[in-house]
Amino acid sequence: MITEIATLTIDPARAADFEAAVAAAAPHFKSAEGCHGMSLEKVIETPGLYNLRVLWETVDHHMVTFRSSDNFQQWRALAGPFFTDAPKVVHGETVGQYF
């Protein structure tokens, strides 16, 4: 399982609307091939900074299949207008789970 972590920066004054837009986009992730979960975390220390965490079977399910889909276009249409900076995306793989 691969975890995508996308760091998203928005105007803090628009946080409630942004969070609602991400919730509205959830079905586009849920129906995406290879997607196994999605969550949004607000960074406490930095208003307007969020981490979107998405679980994918493989990196290709995110970078190829999802990115070339209508689901991705719908996600960006909903959430993209809130971004004040380009998202920063990394992929991780669990190498140990200790408790």
Rank of each mutant, 00 (worst) to 15 (best):
residue 86 A to V: 10
residue 28 H to R: 04
residue 79 A to S: 15
residue 9 T to C: 11
residue 59 V to W: 04
residue 58 T to V: 09
residue 27 P to T: 06
residue 51 N to W: 10
residue 82 F to Q: 03
residue 83 F to T: 03
residue 47 P to W: 10
residue 24 A to H: 05
residue 85 D to P: 00
residue 14 R to M: 15
residue 73 Q to P: 00
residue 80 G to C: 02
residue 50 Y to F: 15
residue 80 G to V: 01
residue 69 S to P: 05
residue 94 T to N: 09
residue 14 R to W: 02
residue 63 M to G: 00
residue 88 K to A: 15
residue 58 T to D: 11
residue 1 M to S: 13
residue 12 P to D: 09
residue 69 S to N: 06
residue 26 A to W: 05
residue 35 C to K: 03
residue 83 F to A: 09
residue 41 E to V: 13
residue 35 C to P: 00
residue 19 E to K: 10
residue 60 D to F: 08
residue 81 P to W: 02
residue 79 A to P: 00
residue 39 S to H: 07
residue 61 H to Q: 07
residue 79 A to L: 04
residue 13 A to Y: 00
residue 91 H to C: 13
residue 40 L to E: 10
residue 17 D to F: 05
residue 71 N to S: 15
residue 77 A to T: 04
residue 71 N to W: 02
residue 18 F to Y: 15
residue 25 A to H: 00
residue 98 Y to W: 12
residue 38 M to L: 15
residue 89 V to H: 02
residue 40 L to F: 09
residue 97 Q to W: 08
residue 65 T to F: 05
residue 20 A to P: 05
residue 11 D to L: 07
residue 74 Q to K: 13
residue 99 F to N: 12
residue 36 H to V: 05
residue 56 W to I: 07
residue 78 L to F: 06
residue 75 W to G: 00
residue 18 F to L: 11
residue 92 G to I: 03
residue 66 F to I: 02
residue 33 E to W: 01
residue 46 T to G: 05
residue 12 P to K: 06
residue 63 M to I: 09
residue 92 G to A: 10
residue 49 L to F: 05
residue 13 A to M: 07
residue 78 L to V: 03
residue 45 E to Q: 11
residue 4 E to I: 05
residue 57 E to H: 09
residue 67 R to S: 08
residue 78 L to M: 11
residue 27 P to G: 09
residue 45 E to Y: 07
residue 53 R to I: 15
residue 65 T to G: 02
residue 20 A to N: 12
residue 13 A to I: 01
residue 84 T to P: 05
residue 38 M to P: 01
residue 53 R to V: 15
residue 20 A to K: 12
residue 81 P to E: 07
residue 18 F to R: 04
residue 80 G to Q: 01
residue 28 H to K: 01
residue 84 T to Y: 08
residue 98 Y to K: 01
residue 94 T to E: 14
residue 99 F to M: 08
residue 88 K to Q: 15
residue 97 Q to R: 11
residue 99 F to C: 02
residue 56 W to Y: 12
residue 41 E to C: 14
residue 47 P to N: 07
residue 70 D to G: 04
residue 48 G to A: 12
residue 63 M to Y: 06
residue 57 E to C: 07
residue 37 G to L: 06
residue 61 H to C: 15
residue 6 A to L: 07
residue 66 F to W: 02
residue 39 S to Y: 07
residue 8 L to V: 13
residue 36 H to A: 14
residue 71 N to G: 06
residue 56 W to S: 10
residue 60 D to M: 11
